[in-house]
């Protein structure tokens, strides 16, 4: 599928990345790309391999096969130069506990080509985070806010956020996304984030990837997902799943009382329920429901 005009190179591209820890396979042949200007959300259950992938993207882990490219360069080999344009908010706060936010900002300012010191202070003020308290004594939410402020300060082209709202209270979460959206509005930063917070991401992400047992189950635009996933509800019959439903690529089928619910992934607007000869209820799904259908227990199509 070639377009007449060359689209700009994706800011992140993984090529068949495989990661193994001893006998355990954390990632298997993961190939995804994050186009410039997009917000990519990687979803997956705990242990699906998200953290491993983020480590590969940050050049902390060398894939057994394949490679991870950030801004067009192999991140393992050129980590220090590539990260000059990348802001990172890690899952676990890893700043030295003894350093204050001010000291952290000062330290980081020397590493990047651009640094908005005013912006950092303004953000911390907005967040209500004191600049002279040691990092270790801040609350979890405050730590995340400091991390975000530090990540945004070098005006990066790419933001990598590893479960940034994990463990944050609703207000902190809201504040976090406010800040992120504000930055997106101002600078059209490309964002790659892993998250469990599907409801928050629903509005912000424009591409979704779902990782399961180290494999990329799905990598698509959110709009597409919304368009093609539907829940079909029909009465239970001995015939099982009607052929017409089966043609829509069901991903999860479950019995609910007297009816059967099938989540299909290939729904077509033009499909008409009267082909089945019985009444079918069609409903659309939230991102969370899509996710659960794909990685939950009732997947595979058993009744």
């Amino acid at each position: 599928m070639t377009s007449p005009t060359a689209s700009p190179a994706p800011l992140i591209q993984t090529e068949d990345v495989t990661v193994r820890y001893g006998r355990r396979t954390a990632l298997e042949g993961v190939s995804l790309s994050v186009p410039a200007g997009s917000v990519y959300a990687l979803l997956g259950r705990n242990g699906a391999g998200k953290s491993s992938l983020v480590r590969c993207l940050l050049g902390e882990q060398r894939p057994k096969t394949g490679r991870a490219l950030l801004l067009g360069k192999d991140i393992w080999k050129q980590r220090a130069s590539v990260l000059r344009e990348v802001g990172v908010v890690p899952e676990e706060p890893d700043a030295p506990p003894a350093m204050t936010a001010r000291q952290l900002a000062h330290f980081c300012s020397r590493l990047y080509p651009r640094w908005d010191a005013e912006g950092v202070s303004a953000r911390l003020r907005r967040f209500g985070v004191p600049e002279d308290v040691p990092f270790g004594r801040l609350s979890k939410g405050q730590k995340g806010q400091v991390a975000l402020a530090l990540a945004l300060a070098p005006s990066p082209r790419l933001l990598i956020l590893d479960d940034p709202t994990l463990g944050l209270d609703p207000l902190a979460r809201r504040t976090f996304f406010d800040e992120l959206i504000g930055d997106l509005a101002d600078r059209r930063t490309t964002v790659f984030m892993t998250t469990h917070d599907l409801t928050a991401v629903e509005g912000i992400a424009d591409r979704i990837g779902i990782l399961q047992d180290g494999r990329l189950l799905l990598d698509d635009e959110l709009e597409n997902l919304k368009r093609r996933f539907r829940r079909l509800s029909f009465p239970k019959t001995e015939a099982g799943v009607p052929a017409a439903v089966a043609a829509l690529a069901p991903v999860a089928v479950a019995a609910r009382g007297w009816s059967v619910e099938a989540v299909v992934s290939d729904y077509d607007e033009a499909w008409l329920p009267h082909e089945t000869g019985s009444r079918v209820e069609i409903s659309s799904l939230t991102l969370e429901e899509i996710f659960l259908a794909l990685v939950g227990e009732a997947k595979g199509g058993t009744v």
Binding site: D178, I181, L184, A185, D186, A200, G203, I204, D206
Partner: peptide, 12 residues
Amino acid sequence: RDLARELQVNPA
């Protein structure tokens, strides 16, 4: 900017 923040959606 403001609407995106209010709705918590991507400004794009």
